[in-house]
Structures are given as structure tokens and as C-alpha cells.
Amino acid sequence: MSDDVVVTRSLTKRFGHVTAVDGLDLAVHDGDRYGFLGPNGSGKTTTVRMLLGLVHATSGEVEMLGRAMPRHAHEVLPQVGALVEGPGAYGHLTGRANLRLLDAAGPAGGPPLADGAGSRRTRARRVDAVLERVGLADVGRRPVRAYSLGMRQRLGLAAALLRGPRLLVLDEPTNGLDPRGIAEVRDLLLELNAQGTTVFLSSHLLAEVQLFCTRVGVLHRGGLVAQDHLGALRGPTGRTLVRVDDVAAGARALGLPPPERRGEGELVLDGTSVAAAADTLVRAGIGVLEAAPERRTLEESVLRLTS
């Protein structure tokens, strides 16, 4: 047992001869915004399905909210909201009717919600509240089959939020959303996270994870190749960036090739002999505005880990 919200130990799943997930050890801390990264086919979705008890592990253990899964699914899952491989809804019903059915289908209990217990009496209010949160309050009586991809995605997110979960497990939640929708969803998730919801975000969109997540796990061919804070993953490259007021003159003074682009104001130095370089620049009468170690983008780190 541990305090972590999601723990897997040597989690393995084989489909016939194909090993989809191989000895995975995940640890998602309480309050994390955890980015679960990996290229297509690396086993992300299979892992998410094993966490939720949809797919049975070949070997290894899953623990969520301190309890073994899938054995304690009935205590764990009411506190978990999930969006797995796209939303699912009955096309002939409205979004509101879909959420009411889903709400009625499961157990009444669950975590205490803002408006009281998750009982039948408060169902209509609960459904209206989540629709409002995801920006679907005004869709009216349209059936879901008339929804756009983005609206369906929002409805799926509303379903995940319906019971006020402690943990959100989201697989590509911004799929099909326009840039503004993506930003809105990110703000919503940040707000929920600030209120104490742990977010486990599975994605192959590196930019999205870099903007949102605090910790990152990188999956490659079914195994975890890195799991660390975002800052640690984006390690220094060993080079230094120096911003100066006159790049051309600065490059000349340091004996570097002249910069290819004008206006950037940045020089790239090999090694970290910043002091000597700054000294040379200052003596040449060039103003040094800033000097900092160069960091990898998440994309560079992940590509390096998964190539």
C-alpha cells in the first residue's frame, strides 16, 4: 500500500504472442498532473484499460486510490472519472438524457459532491452543472448524433466529471477540439487540479503535455523509459544561450560563425564557460542581457528516449 493515487507493479499484458505492456511500474502521486506519453501503439490505451479494470492484466498489479484493482473496482471506480479512446453516447438521445442514464446506471454512492450526496434527487442538478462546466449548457434538445466531434468530446468529459471524481483518467481528451476548445479544457483541468483532483492524462501530443503536466511518464514498446518531473525530463543540453544586444558583433567577438537569422538576439555557446564568454563580450562593448543553460524541449527528450 502507498499514498500514491495510481501504482502499477510489473504490469504486463500479452495478447496472444504480442506483448502490449511489459513490466510497467507507474507511480502517480496525489495531486499530480501526470502526462502519460508514448507513440501510437506503445501500450498507452491498454494500460489505461487495465487501470480501469476493462482489460485483465496477464501479470502484475494495479492499485488505484490505495486499493487493488480490479478486485475493489466497486469502491474505487465511483471516485474515478474516465475518458477512454473517445466519448461514447447513445445517438438518438440528447446529451442531457445520456448523462442522466449514465448517472442512474451506477451506484448512488461516491465521493461527496459540492451539492450534497450523489443521490437521485440531485441528479438533474448534477447533470446541468457538468454540462455547464464543459460549455454544453445551451445545446438544447439536439440528439447526440447531431453533435460535432468537439461537442461529443465535451460530452465525454462531462460524463467523466459527473460524480465529482478524485482522479481523472483521460485518454486524448482534446481530440477533435479546436484551439480555443483545447485551451478551455486545459483551464478546466487546471482548475479541477487546483481543487485537489489528480489528473492522469494519456496523450501523444507533446506540446499539450508540456503545457499542462507536472510529471511525465514516457512509454515505449510497452515499458516505461522515463518517469520524472517535467523540469527534470527537459534536461540541460550542455550548451548555453546568451542573449546580447548585437548578435552579429557578439558572434564576431567570440569567433563564432555569423548568425543565420537576424533579430533573434541569441548566441549558442558550446560548454558552459559563460564567465569567459561574458568577459570577452563586455570588453568588446556588447551588452549581455541574459545567459542561461539551454534546455531540451519535451519533444527532443521524448524522441531521444523512444528512438
Partner: peptide
């Protein structure tokens, strides 16, 4: 095929 089975099971419905 409607994609609703996984959400029912995760809701959770035994």
C-alpha cells in the same frame, strides 16, 4: 460499438 459499454463498466456497473 456505440462506445458506451466501457463507460457503463467504468461507471461502475458490474
Amino acid at each position: 460499438s456505440a462506445g458506451t459499454l466501457r463507460y457503463l463498466l467504468v461507471r461502475p456497473v458490474g
